[in-house]
Nucleic acid binder design. Structure first.
Lengths: 271, 271
DNA sequence: TTGCTCCTCACGTCACGTGAGGTGGC
DNA sequence: TTGCTCCTCACGTCACGTGAGGTGGC
Protein backbone atom coordinates (compact mmCIF):
# COMPACT_ATOMS: atom_id res chain seq x y z
CA UNK A 1 0.00 0.00 0.00
CA UNK A 2 2.52 2.51 1.16
CA UNK A 3 5.33 1.66 -1.26
CA UNK A 4 6.63 4.93 -2.64
CA UNK A 5 8.41 5.41 -5.94
CA UNK A 6 10.71 8.07 -7.29
CA UNK A 7 9.63 9.76 -10.46
CA UNK A 8 11.93 7.74 -12.71
CA UNK A 9 10.64 4.43 -11.42
CA UNK A 10 7.07 5.63 -11.69
CA UNK A 11 7.78 6.71 -15.26
CA UNK A 12 9.04 3.24 -16.20
CA UNK A 13 6.00 1.61 -14.65
CA UNK A 14 3.44 3.87 -16.26
CA UNK A 15 5.17 4.78 -19.54
CA UNK A 16 4.56 8.45 -18.87
CA UNK A 17 7.68 10.56 -19.41
CA UNK A 18 9.24 12.33 -16.44
CA UNK A 19 8.53 15.68 -18.08
CA UNK A 20 4.92 14.74 -18.55
CA UNK A 21 4.61 13.63 -14.92
CA UNK A 22 6.00 16.93 -13.68
CA UNK A 23 3.61 18.74 -15.98
CA UNK A 24 0.66 16.74 -14.65
CA UNK A 25 1.76 17.71 -11.15
CA UNK A 26 1.94 21.39 -12.11
CA UNK A 27 -1.53 21.44 -13.63
CA UNK A 28 -3.03 19.29 -10.89
CA UNK A 29 -3.92 16.30 -13.01
CA UNK A 30 -1.79 13.79 -11.07
CA UNK A 31 -0.23 14.98 -7.83
CA UNK A 32 2.42 12.70 -6.31
CA UNK A 33 1.31 10.96 -3.13
CA UNK A 34 4.01 12.80 -1.25
CA UNK A 35 6.99 15.10 -1.54
CA UNK A 36 10.26 14.59 0.31
CA UNK A 37 10.57 17.70 2.51
CA UNK A 38 14.34 17.78 2.33
CA UNK A 39 15.01 17.15 -1.35
CA UNK A 40 11.71 18.13 -2.93
CA UNK A 41 11.64 14.73 -4.66
CA UNK A 42 8.20 13.69 -5.87
CA UNK A 43 7.13 10.39 -4.35
CA UNK A 44 4.44 8.36 -6.07
CA UNK A 45 2.51 5.46 -4.61
CA UNK A 46 1.99 2.19 -6.46
CA UNK A 47 -1.71 2.82 -5.86
CA UNK A 48 -1.45 5.72 -8.33
CA UNK A 49 -0.46 3.46 -11.21
CA UNK A 50 -4.03 2.74 -12.40
CA UNK A 51 -4.87 6.45 -12.54
CA UNK A 52 -1.71 7.05 -14.53
CA UNK A 53 -2.69 4.33 -16.97
CA UNK A 54 -6.08 5.86 -17.54
CA UNK A 55 -4.44 9.26 -18.09
CA UNK A 56 -1.96 7.85 -20.56
CA UNK A 57 -4.65 6.26 -22.64
CA UNK A 58 -6.81 9.35 -22.75
CA UNK A 59 -3.82 11.48 -23.71
CA UNK A 60 -3.00 8.98 -26.45
CA UNK A 61 -6.51 9.70 -27.68
CA UNK A 62 -5.75 13.44 -27.47
CA UNK A 63 -8.31 14.14 -24.81
CA UNK A 64 -7.54 17.57 -23.29
CA UNK A 65 -6.13 17.52 -19.77
CA UNK A 66 -9.08 19.47 -18.36
CA UNK A 67 -11.50 16.86 -19.62
CA UNK A 68 -9.42 14.06 -18.15
CA UNK A 69 -9.51 15.92 -14.86
CA UNK A 70 -13.30 15.99 -14.97
CA UNK A 71 -13.33 12.27 -15.55
CA UNK A 72 -10.97 11.53 -12.69
CA UNK A 73 -12.60 13.73 -10.05
CA UNK A 74 -15.72 11.60 -10.31
CA UNK A 75 -15.19 9.50 -7.23
CA UNK A 76 -17.96 6.93 -7.50
CA UNK A 77 -16.56 4.17 -9.70
CA UNK A 78 -19.83 3.38 -11.44
CA UNK A 79 -20.58 6.98 -12.37
CA UNK A 80 -16.97 7.45 -13.37
CA UNK A 81 -16.94 4.46 -15.67
CA UNK A 82 -20.12 5.76 -17.29
CA UNK A 83 -18.49 9.14 -17.88
CA UNK A 84 -15.47 7.44 -19.38
CA UNK A 85 -17.56 5.25 -21.63
CA UNK A 86 -19.43 8.31 -22.83
CA UNK A 87 -16.15 10.00 -23.68
CA UNK A 88 -15.14 6.84 -25.46
CA UNK A 89 -18.26 7.15 -27.55
CA UNK A 90 -17.16 10.63 -28.60
CA UNK A 91 -13.71 9.30 -29.43
CA UNK A 92 -15.24 6.59 -31.55
CA UNK A 93 -17.30 9.18 -33.39
CA UNK A 94 -14.18 11.26 -34.04
CA UNK A 95 -12.50 8.13 -35.28
CA UNK A 96 -15.33 7.38 -37.66
CA UNK A 97 -15.01 10.89 -38.99
CA UNK A 98 -11.30 10.36 -39.52
CA UNK A 99 -12.13 7.27 -41.51
CA UNK A 100 -14.50 9.32 -43.58
CA UNK A 101 -11.85 12.01 -44.09
CA UNK A 102 -9.47 9.38 -45.41
CA UNK A 103 -12.17 8.11 -47.72
CA UNK A 104 -12.90 11.59 -49.01
CA UNK A 105 -9.20 12.13 -49.61
CA UNK A 106 -9.03 9.01 -51.69
CA UNK A 107 -12.09 10.14 -53.59
CA UNK A 108 -10.47 13.50 -54.14
CA UNK A 109 -7.37 11.91 -55.61
CA UNK A 110 -9.41 9.74 -57.90
CA UNK A 111 -10.91 12.92 -59.31
CA UNK A 112 -14.17 14.15 -57.93
CA UNK A 113 -17.12 14.11 -60.30
CA UNK A 114 -18.30 17.68 -60.00
CA UNK A 115 -22.06 17.80 -60.06
CA UNK A 116 -24.41 19.91 -62.11
CA UNK A 117 -24.94 23.56 -61.45
CA UNK A 118 -28.48 24.83 -61.25
CA UNK A 119 -29.69 28.43 -61.04
CA UNK A 120 -32.67 28.52 -58.75
CA UNK A 121 -34.95 31.19 -57.38
CA UNK A 122 -35.62 29.99 -53.84
CA UNK A 123 -38.85 31.47 -52.45
CA UNK A 124 -38.89 32.90 -48.99
CA UNK A 125 -40.62 30.79 -46.40
CA UNK A 126 -41.92 30.66 -42.88
CA UNK A 127 -40.04 28.31 -40.59
CA UNK A 128 -39.29 27.27 -37.07
CA UNK A 129 -35.69 28.22 -36.50
CA UNK A 130 -32.92 28.41 -33.94
CA UNK A 131 -30.05 30.82 -34.31
CA UNK A 132 -26.76 30.65 -32.46
CA UNK A 133 -23.09 31.38 -32.63
CA UNK A 134 -21.53 28.03 -33.35
CA UNK A 135 -17.95 26.82 -33.45
CA UNK A 136 -16.76 24.85 -36.44
CA UNK A 137 -16.15 21.57 -34.65
CA UNK A 138 -19.43 21.75 -32.77
CA UNK A 139 -21.53 22.45 -35.84
CA UNK A 140 -22.50 18.92 -36.80
CA UNK A 141 -23.50 18.03 -33.26
CA UNK A 142 -25.33 21.31 -32.80
CA UNK A 143 -27.36 20.81 -35.98
CA UNK A 144 -28.33 17.33 -34.87
CA UNK A 145 -29.71 18.38 -31.51
CA UNK A 146 -31.32 21.52 -32.89
CA UNK A 147 -33.20 19.76 -35.66
CA UNK A 148 -34.41 17.20 -33.18
CA UNK A 149 -35.75 20.05 -31.05
CA UNK A 150 -37.36 21.73 -34.05
CA UNK A 151 -39.05 18.54 -35.19
CA UNK A 152 -40.35 17.97 -31.68
CA UNK A 153 -41.74 21.51 -31.65
CA UNK A 154 -43.40 21.00 -35.03
CA UNK A 155 -45.15 17.93 -33.72
CA UNK A 156 -46.11 19.64 -30.48
CA UNK A 157 -47.86 22.40 -32.39
CA UNK A 158 -49.47 20.00 -34.87
CA UNK A 159 -47.63 21.50 -37.83
CA UNK A 160 -46.08 19.78 -40.84
CA UNK A 161 -42.78 20.37 -42.54
CA UNK A 162 -43.14 22.00 -45.94
CA UNK A 163 -39.67 21.21 -47.24
CA UNK A 164 -36.26 19.92 -46.29
CA UNK A 165 -34.47 21.23 -43.20
CA UNK A 166 -31.92 23.86 -43.97
CA UNK A 167 -29.36 26.21 -42.46
CA UNK A 168 -27.88 29.62 -43.19
CA UNK A 169 -24.20 30.15 -42.53
CA UNK A 170 -22.60 33.51 -41.87
CA UNK A 171 -19.29 34.37 -43.50
CA UNK A 172 -17.63 34.40 -40.09
CA UNK A 173 -18.55 30.77 -39.63
CA UNK A 174 -16.28 29.85 -42.52
CA UNK A 175 -13.67 32.55 -42.19
CA UNK A 176 -13.12 32.41 -38.44
CA UNK A 177 -14.56 28.92 -37.92
CA UNK A 178 -16.88 30.49 -35.42
CA UNK A 179 -20.02 32.45 -36.35
CA UNK A 180 -23.77 32.71 -36.65
CA UNK A 181 -25.71 29.74 -37.91
CA UNK A 182 -29.49 29.58 -38.38
CA UNK A 183 -31.01 26.12 -38.52
CA UNK A 184 -34.57 26.03 -39.79
CA UNK A 185 -37.39 23.65 -40.52
CA UNK A 186 -39.78 25.19 -43.08
CA UNK A 187 -43.48 25.06 -42.40
CA UNK A 188 -46.39 26.50 -44.37
CA UNK A 189 -47.81 28.19 -41.31
CA UNK A 190 -46.64 28.99 -37.81
CA UNK A 191 -50.15 29.37 -36.47
CA UNK A 192 -50.44 28.42 -32.83
CA UNK A 193 -46.75 28.64 -32.03
CA UNK A 194 -46.63 30.53 -28.77
CA UNK A 195 -42.85 30.67 -28.53
CA UNK A 196 -42.25 33.68 -30.78
CA UNK A 197 -38.48 33.16 -30.75
CA UNK A 198 -38.95 29.98 -32.75
CA UNK A 199 -40.76 31.64 -35.62
CA UNK A 200 -38.54 32.89 -38.41
CA UNK A 201 -38.82 34.22 -41.89
CA UNK A 202 -36.25 32.65 -44.17
CA UNK A 203 -35.58 35.07 -47.00
CA UNK A 204 -35.58 33.73 -50.52
CA UNK A 205 -33.33 34.77 -53.35
CA UNK A 206 -31.42 33.70 -56.39
CA UNK A 207 -28.86 30.97 -55.82
CA UNK A 208 -26.54 28.66 -57.63
CA UNK A 209 -27.40 25.22 -56.26
CA UNK A 210 -25.20 22.13 -56.34
CA UNK A 211 -26.03 18.76 -54.84
CA UNK A 212 -23.46 17.22 -52.53
CA UNK A 213 -23.62 13.45 -52.35
CA UNK A 214 -22.22 11.70 -49.32
CA UNK A 215 -20.95 12.63 -45.85
CA UNK A 216 -20.12 16.17 -44.74
CA UNK A 217 -16.41 15.44 -44.52
CA UNK A 218 -16.18 15.98 -48.27
CA UNK A 219 -18.60 18.85 -48.68
CA UNK A 220 -15.82 21.35 -49.28
CA UNK A 221 -15.38 19.90 -52.77
CA UNK A 222 -18.92 20.95 -53.61
CA UNK A 223 -18.27 24.36 -52.07
CA UNK A 224 -15.18 24.64 -54.25
CA UNK A 225 -17.09 23.69 -57.38
CA UNK A 226 -19.97 26.05 -56.66
CA UNK A 227 -17.65 28.87 -55.66
CA UNK A 228 -15.50 28.42 -58.75
CA UNK A 229 -18.54 28.57 -60.98
CA UNK A 230 -19.87 31.70 -59.33
CA UNK A 231 -16.46 33.31 -59.54
CA UNK A 232 -15.86 32.46 -63.17
CA UNK A 233 -19.28 33.73 -64.13
CA UNK A 234 -18.62 36.81 -62.00
CA UNK A 235 -22.10 36.62 -60.50
CA UNK A 236 -21.29 36.38 -56.79
CA UNK A 237 -23.62 38.21 -54.44
CA UNK A 238 -23.33 38.91 -50.71
CA UNK A 239 -25.36 37.02 -48.17
CA UNK A 240 -25.23 33.83 -46.19
CA UNK A 241 -24.62 30.47 -47.81
CA UNK A 242 -27.50 28.09 -47.45
CA UNK A 243 -27.57 24.34 -47.14
CA UNK A 244 -30.68 22.22 -47.67
CA UNK A 245 -30.59 18.78 -46.07
CA UNK A 246 -32.54 16.93 -48.74
CA UNK A 247 -31.56 13.51 -47.41
CA UNK A 248 -30.29 13.88 -43.87
CA UNK A 249 -29.19 11.63 -41.07
CA UNK A 250 -32.85 11.48 -40.00
CA UNK A 251 -33.74 9.69 -43.22
CA UNK A 252 -30.81 7.36 -43.74
CA UNK A 253 -28.07 5.63 -41.81
CA UNK A 254 -25.90 5.19 -44.88
CA UNK A 255 -23.48 8.13 -45.12
CA UNK A 256 -23.17 7.59 -48.87
CA UNK A 257 -26.90 8.21 -49.26
CA UNK A 258 -26.80 11.68 -47.70
CA UNK A 259 -27.81 14.53 -50.03
CA UNK A 260 -27.11 18.16 -49.26
CA UNK A 261 -27.83 21.13 -51.52
CA UNK A 262 -25.20 23.85 -51.32
CA UNK A 263 -26.79 27.18 -52.27
CA UNK A 264 -24.48 30.06 -53.17
CA UNK A 265 -26.12 33.49 -53.47
CA UNK A 266 -25.83 35.14 -56.89
CA UNK A 267 -26.86 38.41 -58.47
CA UNK A 268 -30.09 38.84 -60.37
CA UNK A 269 -29.03 38.99 -64.05
CA UNK A 270 -29.30 42.43 -65.59
CA UNK A 271 -31.70 42.68 -68.45
CA UNK B 1 -8.33 30.31 -65.29
CA UNK B 2 -7.34 33.71 -64.08
CA UNK B 3 -10.28 34.30 -61.75
CA UNK B 4 -8.83 35.71 -58.54
CA UNK B 5 -10.41 35.56 -55.11
CA UNK B 6 -9.96 37.56 -51.97
CA UNK B 7 -8.99 35.62 -48.89
CA UNK B 8 -12.51 35.60 -47.44
CA UNK B 9 -14.05 34.14 -50.57
CA UNK B 10 -11.28 31.59 -50.83
CA UNK B 11 -11.90 30.67 -47.20
CA UNK B 12 -15.58 30.03 -47.86
CA UNK B 13 -14.78 27.88 -50.88
CA UNK B 14 -12.12 25.77 -49.20
CA UNK B 15 -13.35 25.75 -45.59
CA UNK B 16 -9.92 26.84 -44.40
CA UNK B 17 -10.08 29.72 -41.90
CA UNK B 18 -8.61 33.07 -42.88
CA UNK B 19 -6.10 32.79 -40.06
CA UNK B 20 -5.04 29.38 -41.27
CA UNK B 21 -4.65 30.65 -44.84
CA UNK B 22 -2.42 33.50 -43.70
CA UNK B 23 -0.40 31.03 -41.66
CA UNK B 24 0.01 28.72 -44.67
CA UNK B 25 1.24 31.73 -46.64
CA UNK B 26 3.76 32.60 -43.91
CA UNK B 27 5.19 29.10 -43.73
CA UNK B 28 5.14 28.62 -47.49
CA UNK B 29 2.61 25.83 -47.61
CA UNK B 30 0.10 27.66 -49.79
CA UNK B 31 1.18 30.97 -51.30
CA UNK B 32 -1.56 33.08 -52.88
CA UNK B 33 -1.37 33.26 -56.68
CA UNK B 34 -0.79 36.98 -56.39
CA UNK B 35 -0.67 39.94 -54.05
CA UNK B 36 -2.23 43.30 -54.80
CA UNK B 37 0.72 45.71 -54.85
CA UNK B 38 -1.28 48.63 -53.52
CA UNK B 39 -3.25 47.04 -50.70
CA UNK B 40 -1.19 43.95 -49.94
CA UNK B 41 -4.37 41.87 -50.34
CA UNK B 42 -3.73 38.18 -50.96
CA UNK B 43 -5.30 37.02 -54.20
CA UNK B 44 -5.99 33.35 -54.71
CA UNK B 45 -6.79 31.61 -57.97
CA UNK B 46 -9.66 29.16 -58.35
CA UNK B 47 -7.00 26.76 -59.62
CA UNK B 48 -5.62 26.64 -56.07
CA UNK B 49 -8.80 25.19 -54.63
CA UNK B 50 -7.84 21.52 -55.13
CA UNK B 51 -4.50 22.03 -53.38
CA UNK B 52 -6.33 23.70 -50.50
CA UNK B 53 -8.70 20.76 -50.26
CA UNK B 54 -5.85 18.30 -50.03
CA UNK B 55 -4.22 20.44 -47.34
CA UNK B 56 -7.41 20.64 -45.34
CA UNK B 57 -7.86 16.89 -45.33
CA UNK B 58 -4.31 16.19 -44.29
CA UNK B 59 -4.52 18.75 -41.50
CA UNK B 60 -7.76 17.15 -40.36
CA UNK B 61 -5.69 14.00 -40.09
CA UNK B 62 -3.08 15.95 -38.09
CA UNK B 63 -0.35 15.53 -40.63
CA UNK B 64 2.40 18.08 -39.84
CA UNK B 65 2.69 20.99 -42.24
CA UNK B 66 6.23 20.05 -43.25
CA UNK B 67 5.08 16.61 -44.34
CA UNK B 68 2.21 18.09 -46.33
CA UNK B 69 4.73 20.35 -48.02
CA UNK B 70 6.77 17.34 -49.06
CA UNK B 71 3.69 15.77 -50.54
CA UNK B 72 2.71 18.85 -52.48
CA UNK B 73 6.13 19.68 -53.94
CA UNK B 74 6.02 16.39 -55.80
CA UNK B 75 5.00 17.73 -59.17
CA UNK B 76 4.37 14.56 -61.16
CA UNK B 77 0.75 13.65 -60.39
CA UNK B 78 1.32 9.89 -60.44
CA UNK B 79 4.29 9.99 -58.08
CA UNK B 80 2.46 12.46 -55.90
CA UNK B 81 -0.63 10.31 -55.61
CA UNK B 82 1.59 7.40 -54.65
CA UNK B 83 3.23 9.47 -51.92
CA UNK B 84 -0.18 10.51 -50.66
CA UNK B 85 -1.49 6.98 -50.65
CA UNK B 86 1.55 5.87 -48.70
CA UNK B 87 0.90 8.57 -46.12
CA UNK B 88 -2.69 7.40 -46.01
CA UNK B 89 -1.41 3.97 -45.15
CA UNK B 90 0.44 5.44 -42.18
CA UNK B 91 -2.72 7.29 -41.14
CA UNK B 92 -4.68 4.09 -41.32
CA UNK B 93 -2.10 2.38 -39.13
CA UNK B 94 -2.31 5.19 -36.57
CA UNK B 95 -6.06 4.85 -36.67
CA UNK B 96 -5.87 1.15 -36.02
CA UNK B 97 -3.68 1.88 -33.05
CA UNK B 98 -6.22 4.37 -31.76
CA UNK B 99 -8.84 1.65 -32.01
CA UNK B 100 -6.59 -0.60 -30.00
CA UNK B 101 -6.03 2.12 -27.41
CA UNK B 102 -9.77 2.44 -26.98
CA UNK B 103 -10.05 -1.31 -26.61
CA UNK B 104 -7.31 -1.38 -23.99
CA UNK B 105 -9.04 1.41 -22.10
CA UNK B 106 -12.23 -0.57 -22.01
CA UNK B 107 -10.28 -3.59 -20.85
CA UNK B 108 -8.65 -1.49 -18.16
CA UNK B 109 -12.02 -0.33 -16.85
CA UNK B 110 -13.34 -3.85 -16.75
CA UNK B 111 -10.46 -4.71 -14.45
CA UNK B 112 -7.33 -6.20 -15.96
CA UNK B 113 -6.50 -9.75 -14.98
CA UNK B 114 -2.96 -9.32 -13.77
CA UNK B 115 -0.86 -12.29 -14.79
CA UNK B 116 1.45 -14.48 -12.79
CA UNK B 117 4.82 -13.34 -11.57
CA UNK B 118 7.78 -15.59 -12.19
CA UNK B 119 11.32 -15.22 -10.87
CA UNK B 120 13.69 -16.35 -13.58
CA UNK B 121 17.44 -16.54 -13.98
CA UNK B 122 17.91 -15.62 -17.63
CA UNK B 123 21.23 -16.94 -18.97
CA UNK B 124 23.43 -14.68 -21.01
CA UNK B 125 23.48 -15.40 -24.72
CA UNK B 126 25.14 -14.63 -27.99
CA UNK B 127 22.99 -12.72 -30.44
CA UNK B 128 22.85 -10.65 -33.56
CA UNK B 129 21.82 -7.22 -32.40
CA UNK B 130 21.28 -3.65 -33.48
CA UNK B 131 21.54 -0.79 -31.04
CA UNK B 132 20.20 2.70 -31.59
CA UNK B 133 18.76 5.74 -29.94
CA UNK B 134 15.07 5.48 -30.62
CA UNK B 135 12.18 7.83 -30.08
CA UNK B 136 9.07 6.54 -28.35
CA UNK B 137 6.70 6.85 -31.28
CA UNK B 138 9.17 5.33 -33.70
CA UNK B 139 9.91 2.30 -31.54
CA UNK B 140 7.36 -0.13 -32.90
CA UNK B 141 8.27 0.63 -36.50
CA UNK B 142 11.97 0.54 -35.72
CA UNK B 143 11.70 -2.87 -34.08
CA UNK B 144 9.82 -4.23 -37.07
CA UNK B 145 12.40 -3.21 -39.63
CA UNK B 146 15.32 -4.13 -37.39
CA UNK B 147 14.08 -7.64 -36.68
CA UNK B 148 13.48 -8.17 -40.37
CA UNK B 149 17.08 -7.15 -41.00
CA UNK B 150 18.35 -9.42 -38.22
CA UNK B 151 16.40 -12.40 -39.51
CA UNK B 152 17.72 -11.79 -42.99
CA UNK B 153 21.26 -11.67 -41.61
CA UNK B 154 20.72 -14.92 -39.71
CA UNK B 155 19.64 -16.62 -42.89
CA UNK B 156 22.50 -15.12 -44.86
CA UNK B 157 25.02 -16.58 -42.45
CA UNK B 158 23.23 -19.92 -42.22
CA UNK B 159 22.52 -19.54 -38.51
CA UNK B 160 19.43 -20.46 -36.53
CA UNK B 161 17.61 -18.56 -33.85
CA UNK B 162 18.07 -20.07 -30.41
CA UNK B 163 15.20 -18.27 -28.68
CA UNK B 164 12.63 -15.52 -29.07
CA UNK B 165 13.63 -12.08 -30.30
CA UNK B 166 14.11 -9.59 -27.52
CA UNK B 167 15.04 -6.03 -26.73
CA UNK B 168 16.72 -4.11 -23.92
CA UNK B 169 15.36 -0.69 -23.04
CA UNK B 170 17.37 2.02 -21.32
CA UNK B 171 15.77 4.06 -18.55
CA UNK B 172 15.95 7.14 -20.75
CA UNK B 173 13.72 5.45 -23.29
CA UNK B 174 10.91 5.42 -20.75
CA UNK B 175 11.73 8.56 -18.81
CA UNK B 176 12.48 10.88 -21.71
CA UNK B 177 10.63 8.87 -24.38
CA UNK B 178 13.90 8.86 -26.29
CA UNK B 179 16.82 6.57 -25.48
CA UNK B 180 18.95 3.54 -26.27
CA UNK B 181 17.27 0.37 -27.40
CA UNK B 182 19.01 -2.88 -28.28
CA UNK B 183 17.06 -5.30 -30.43
CA UNK B 184 18.51 -8.78 -30.56
CA UNK B 185 17.92 -12.18 -32.09
CA UNK B 186 19.65 -14.86 -29.98
CA UNK B 187 21.72 -17.46 -31.75
CA UNK B 188 23.82 -20.31 -30.33
CA UNK B 189 26.84 -19.26 -32.34
CA UNK B 190 27.91 -16.23 -34.32
CA UNK B 191 30.50 -18.16 -36.30
CA UNK B 192 31.00 -16.82 -39.79
CA UNK B 193 29.42 -13.43 -39.17
CA UNK B 194 31.88 -11.02 -40.76
CA UNK B 195 30.01 -7.88 -39.70
CA UNK B 196 31.38 -7.58 -36.18
CA UNK B 197 28.98 -4.78 -35.29
CA UNK B 198 26.09 -7.24 -35.49
CA UNK B 199 27.50 -9.60 -32.88
CA UNK B 200 26.47 -8.90 -29.35
CA UNK B 201 26.60 -10.50 -25.97
CA UNK B 202 23.28 -10.19 -24.17
CA UNK B 203 23.96 -10.34 -20.45
CA UNK B 204 21.82 -12.61 -18.35
CA UNK B 205 20.60 -11.96 -14.84
CA UNK B 206 17.81 -12.41 -12.38
CA UNK B 207 14.47 -11.01 -13.46
CA UNK B 208 10.86 -10.90 -12.51
CA UNK B 209 9.02 -12.01 -15.64
CA UNK B 210 5.38 -11.35 -16.50
CA UNK B 211 3.64 -12.33 -19.68
CA UNK B 212 1.74 -9.62 -21.52
CA UNK B 213 -1.08 -10.93 -23.69
CA UNK B 214 -2.29 -8.83 -26.58
CA UNK B 215 -1.18 -5.72 -28.46
CA UNK B 216 1.49 -3.31 -27.27
CA UNK B 217 -1.01 -0.53 -26.69
CA UNK B 218 -1.84 -2.11 -23.35
CA UNK B 219 1.60 -3.27 -22.26
CA UNK B 220 1.89 -0.57 -19.61
CA UNK B 221 -0.56 -2.52 -17.47
CA UNK B 222 1.91 -5.40 -17.34
CA UNK B 223 4.72 -2.94 -16.60
CA UNK B 224 2.62 -1.55 -13.78
CA UNK B 225 1.95 -5.00 -12.34
CA UNK B 226 5.57 -6.11 -12.58
CA UNK B 227 6.84 -2.81 -11.21
CA UNK B 228 4.40 -2.88 -8.31
CA UNK B 229 5.46 -6.38 -7.40
CA UNK B 230 9.16 -5.53 -7.51
CA UNK B 231 8.53 -2.43 -5.45
CA UNK B 232 6.44 -4.12 -2.80
CA UNK B 233 8.98 -6.90 -2.43
CA UNK B 234 11.71 -4.23 -2.34
CA UNK B 235 13.89 -6.25 -4.70
CA UNK B 236 14.38 -3.76 -7.54
CA UNK B 237 17.80 -3.74 -9.18
CA UNK B 238 19.31 -1.35 -11.70
CA UNK B 239 19.70 -2.25 -15.33
CA UNK B 240 17.70 -2.17 -18.54
CA UNK B 241 14.25 -3.66 -18.78
CA UNK B 242 14.04 -6.55 -21.19
CA UNK B 243 11.19 -7.68 -23.42
CA UNK B 244 11.02 -11.11 -25.05
CA UNK B 245 8.75 -11.35 -28.08
CA UNK B 246 7.53 -14.88 -27.50
CA UNK B 247 4.72 -14.57 -30.03
CA UNK B 248 5.41 -11.60 -32.27
CA UNK B 249 3.91 -10.02 -35.33
CA UNK B 250 6.07 -12.39 -37.39
CA UNK B 251 4.17 -15.37 -36.02
CA UNK B 252 0.61 -14.13 -35.93
CA UNK B 253 -1.65 -11.55 -37.52
CA UNK B 254 -4.09 -11.60 -34.63
CA UNK B 255 -3.15 -8.83 -32.16
CA UNK B 256 -4.87 -10.72 -29.35
CA UNK B 257 -2.51 -13.64 -29.87
CA UNK B 258 0.64 -11.59 -29.28
CA UNK B 259 2.72 -12.64 -26.24
CA UNK B 260 5.45 -10.48 -24.77
CA UNK B 261 7.47 -11.23 -21.67
CA UNK B 262 8.26 -8.16 -19.61
CA UNK B 263 11.47 -8.79 -17.61
CA UNK B 264 12.22 -6.49 -14.69
CA UNK B 265 15.71 -6.79 -13.20
CA UNK B 266 15.81 -7.79 -9.51
CA UNK B 267 18.45 -8.36 -6.87
CA UNK B 268 19.95 -11.74 -6.12
CA UNK B 269 18.35 -12.74 -2.81
CA UNK B 270 20.70 -12.64 0.17
CA UNK B 271 21.31 -15.92 1.84
C1' DT C 1 34.71 12.80 -3.87
C1' DT C 2 32.34 11.02 -8.06
C1' DG C 3 27.77 9.75 -10.17
C1' DC C 4 23.29 9.51 -10.11
C1' DT C 5 18.78 11.16 -9.67
C1' DC C 6 16.19 14.51 -8.80
C1' DC C 7 14.88 19.70 -8.59
C1' DT C 8 13.34 24.50 -10.56
C1' DC C 9 13.22 28.15 -13.75
C1' DA C 10 13.04 29.93 -18.47
C1' DC C 11 12.39 29.35 -23.00
C1' DG C 12 11.15 26.69 -27.39
C1' DT C 13 7.74 24.18 -30.44
C1' DC C 14 3.60 23.49 -33.33
C1' DA C 15 -0.44 25.33 -35.60
C1' DC C 16 -2.84 28.34 -35.39
C1' DG C 17 -6.34 31.93 -32.47
C1' DT C 18 -6.91 36.52 -30.38
C1' DG C 19 -6.91 41.03 -30.22
C1' DA C 20 -4.89 45.85 -31.34
C1' DG C 21 -4.26 49.30 -34.52
C1' DG C 22 -4.41 50.64 -39.16
C1' DT C 23 -5.30 50.97 -44.48
C1' DG C 24 -7.74 51.03 -49.25
C1' DG C 25 -11.77 50.89 -52.40
C1' DC C 26 -17.02 51.07 -53.12
C1' DT D 1 -18.07 59.74 -45.14
C1' DT D 2 -19.36 55.18 -43.34
C1' DG D 3 -18.56 50.09 -43.61
C1' DC D 4 -16.38 46.52 -45.09
C1' DT D 5 -12.54 43.71 -45.99
C1' DC D 6 -8.26 43.24 -45.72
C1' DC D 7 -3.40 44.04 -43.63
C1' DT D 8 0.62 43.42 -40.04
C1' DC D 9 2.59 42.90 -35.65
C1' DA D 10 2.64 40.92 -31.00
C1' DC D 11 1.13 37.89 -27.87
C1' DG D 12 -1.66 33.75 -26.12
C1' DT D 13 -2.73 28.66 -26.02
C1' DC D 14 -1.95 23.66 -25.32
C1' DA D 15 0.99 19.93 -23.79
C1' DC D 16 4.73 19.16 -23.14
C1' DG D 17 10.32 19.08 -24.69
C1' DT D 18 14.86 21.27 -24.16
C1' DG D 19 18.48 22.84 -21.93
C1' DA D 20 20.86 25.44 -17.93
C1' DG D 21 22.26 25.44 -13.43
C1' DG D 22 21.98 23.39 -9.06
C1' DT D 23 21.13 20.05 -4.90
C1' DG D 24 21.03 15.66 -1.81
C1' DG D 25 22.18 10.79 -0.64
C1' DC D 26 25.03 6.43 -1.57
Amino acid sequence: MGSLLMIGEFSRMTHLSVKALRHYDDVGLLKPAGVDPGSGYRLYSVAQIPAAQVIRRFRDLDMPIDQIKEVLVTEDPNTRDKVILQHLGNMQAKLDQTQSTIASLRALLEGGASGRVEHRQIPSSTALAIRARVGWDDAEGWLGTVFEALHAALERYGLTRSGPDGALYSDAFFEAHDGEVVAFTPTSTAAGVDDRTLIAHVPGGLYVVMMHEGPFAGIDTTYGAAGSYVTEQAIAAPGPIRENYVVSGFETDDPAALRTEVCWPIQVPRS
